[in-house]
């Protein structure tokens, strides 16, 4: 059983949904970033999406754009994110999904990216601009089933396409809950619930929902029809606003706990 499968099974037994957190690695700096990730994991984060910053993040709204730029200024590279992954894995039993844009992997290049990621203990990667049409050129390097490519399903994805994506899916499927970039307003809970229901007909993989989810109330609504809830921009905003605070880790820990509570039955 992979760490991702194990995690979702445990949560199911506890009647909880997964809290999935996206954070740009290296923001506001490498050390603080590591500390705040530890704080989040200790406060109940179930799955970590660790962002490798790209200069031209076309699927991201202003909050994650700014966090990517700060991380890039701090010299964050794939290698540094993998070092961080390895350090986190040494202390915590949490699935870690790398999150990035394809050019960085292609340039690394792909075969080395796979090997180094597995060595570091990462469980998979989500590549925002690598749709199923092109994804074989990356997954052809994945061996042994120890590393997965997380696929996305959008509000604009129709059922046929959903089926095609579900067939290629591994780890979990990421359902986008609004038509737009990350951190936007206009979470479409009703429509997303219908999409999730449709998707469940075509997959046995867990479905995690994200984009535009920024409050515990949102988390409760989305947790009702998903196996996991992804928070990104809301965490990034906290990091941005409290970058200079001595209590950054404490602040993000409290935020994590309130989101985590909302994933629990009756939470």
């Amino acid at each position: 059983m992979t760490p991702i499968e194990r995690k979702f099974r445990e949560l199911k037994e506890k009647q909880e949904k997964a809290l999935v957190g996206f954070v740009s690695a290296g923001d506001p700096d490498m050390d603080k970033s590591f500390d705040l990730l530890c704080a989040m994991i200790e406060s109940g984060l179930d799955v970590l999406e660790l962002g490798i910053p790209f200069s031209d993040p076309t699927a991201d709204g202003p909050v994650i754009q700014r966090s990517s730029m700060r991380a890039l200024k701090n010299g964050v590279t794939i290698s540094k994110v993998l070092d961080m992954t390895q350090r986190l894995k040494a202390s915590y039993d949490i699935p870690i999904i790398l999150f990035t844009y394809y050019n960085l992997i292609f340039r690394f290049p792909s075969a080395d990216f796979y090997e180094r990621s597995v060595e570091a203990g990462a469980d998979g990667v989500l590549v925002v601009d690598l749709p199923v049409e092109e994804s074989d050129e990356l997954t052809c390097y994945f061996k042994n089933g120890d590393f997965c490519l997380i696929h996305l399903i959008a509000p604009t994805t129709d059922e046929n396409r959903m089926k095609m994506i579900a067939e290629k899916g591994s780890g979990f499927l990421y359902l986008i809950s609004m038509t737009g970039v990350t951190g936007g307003k206009g979470l479409e809970t009703g429509l997303t619930a219908e999409k999730a229901k449709m998707l469940k007909k075509h997959t046995r993989l867990p479905v995690c929902t994200g984009f535009g989810i920024s409050t515990p109330e949102h988390v409760r609504e989305v947790a009702a029809f998903s196996d996991g809830v992804v928070i990104g921009s809301a965490f990034e905003k906290t990091i941005e606003e409290n970058a200079d605070s001595a209590d950054l880790a404490g602040i993000i820990a409290r935020q994590t706990r309130s989101f985590k509570q909302a994933t629990r039955k009756g939470g």
């Binding site: 076309t58 699927a59 394809y102 925002v128 601009d129 690598l130 749709p131 049409e133 092109e134 696929h151 996305l152 399903i153 959008a154 509000p155 604009t156 994805t157 129709d158 396409r161 994506i165 986008i176 038509t179 737009g180």
Partner: peptide, 12 residues
């Protein structure tokens, strides 16, 4: 070439 776009744009 190819289509390296986010899933939200693929259908369009």
């Amino acid at each position: 070439g190819g289509m390296y776009a986010g899933e939200t744009l693929m259908t369009a």
